[in-house]
Design a protein around this nucleic acid. Structure first.
Lengths: 236, 236
DNA sequence: ATAATAATATGATATTTATCATATAAAGTC
DNA sequence: GACTTTATATGATAAATATCATATTATTAT
């Protein structure tokens, strides 16, 4: 039963690649074995909601595979993508640590494999492993820096600059396929809601970049053909 | 020598009001006494730079009195105010915890009284007092939530909405004088750089709010005369 | 396959916001 | 106090962006 075997291997945190990333890398073998026992593995289909703004999460999701978007709804019903979270990263820490309902919704952009670790168990690790707490704090500090930077970009950069920047970010952070297209496929609406603009404006600027020879478009696939030029747009 | 006495009282963390706010409230009397010995009290004049983007801070400033702005310079030289930090709050934690140069500059908006606590001493408190670490983490999580929310506001709200929101925020968070004017006096340029717009646009919208009877202006003094109306503008 | 639906694309126009110009008022400086 | 500089204010205009309309192309469902 190779299928069964695979599932059994999957369930051991001490053998999971994800343990080498995020704050989890501070956990020792014993702690990882303990985590194996308290975690719940889940498969999440593309488009499914992992948790929603306002919901109590009460634990952390550890992303083994896939990417999700963190979004917030404005009073007038528009959705803003605040950040993307990918393989190797954690989800829901802020809400868990603050003991507050989630501030953002998490929605899968691809099929995902995640493990849920309940708060009670994590608090145990916090108390007995200082390096783990410290790592978690550093990781949240990184998120804070990113959020501040993004806020400044929103305030000071034009939509065109933000689109150029976002395309480079998508290529650098989430990678490209052998044919150079971005691995993560976003709808134009999603791309627009990452950069904070109307879908039509986003489409128009993509067309413009295409005409200038900076990118290529075919359906949902986007590839960067002149990264230097895009970078120049992004930085001024 | 009442003056001398006052100074001596000021130097004891265990008697400082600020200890009741921020993550410091988790420290016990012994720890506060220890902190008194390692801290350095400083007076900072309005307009003075506390630390600058890119600088290594290597500790935390504890604000006993006054307000400062945290700013970031864009590549094209424009300054964005990312947040205000006031009495009772800490300054420089993110940079210290991440072990990175400061991401933002801190500039006094009023005369300030602050105490600097070196990193080495704080790390000691982190290691021996779990509640302190946890409080610090919660406080940074709060900052992260604020940053995310601000980012969404920048992306989805108009300049008018952001100005209305900011005026209410200034009144609620930093208070008003007996004559109803906002306690914190910002230049039009600073107000504009909080909401992420051109100074002229900010001035124009202030005039508009004045004409509508929402606010009153006299020099640098701003007072809110119709909070409900402003709130309505801010929320839609 | 074909119809129905949703996503992408592009034009026309309105709105918002920035920029440039200039006037007035306030605050520092000698 | 007169002068200089800086901040505030407002008009005129340009640029950026949103909105509405409509076509075209993909996707999905039957």
């Amino acid at each position: 039963m190779p299928q069964q075997q695979k599932l059994s291997a999957m369930s051991k945190c001490e053998q999971c690649i994800v343990r080498e990333f995020s704050a989890l890398k501070a956990l020792n073998k014993d702690e990882l074995i303990r985590m194996s026992e308290c975690k719940t593995a889940k498969t999440i289909k593309k488009g499914a909601v992992i948790f929603e703004e306002g919901q109590h999460v009460n634990g952390v999701f550890c992303i083994k595979d896939g990417v999700c978007k963190m979004t917030k709804l404005s009073p007038n019903g528009k959705e803003q993508i605040v950040k993307l979270v990918k393989k190797g990263e954690l989800l829901g820490q802020r809400s868990m640590i603050s003991d507050e309902p989630a501030n953002l919704s998490a929605v899968a952009l691809e099929d995902m494999q995640v493990c849920f670790v309940p708060k009670s168990d994590l608090i145990g690790f916090f108390n007995q492993n200082n390096k783990f707490s410290m790592n978690m704090m550093k990781s949240i500090c990184g998120d804070l820096k990113d959020a501040d930077d993004l806020m400044v970009d929103m305030a000071l950069k034009t939509v065109k600059e933000r689109l150029a920047h976002t395309l480079i970010y998508l290529a650098d952070t989430l990678g490209t396929n052998p044919d150079q297209t971005l691995k993560l496929q976003l709808s134009r609406e999603e791309l627009a809601s990452m950069i904070g603009t109307a879908t039509e404006s986003c489409i128009r600027l993509l067309s413009e970049f295409k005409k200038l020879g900076y990118i290529e478009l075919s359906g949902k696939n986007i590839s960067i053909s002149n990264k230097k030029a895009l970078q120049a747009v992004a930085n001024h």
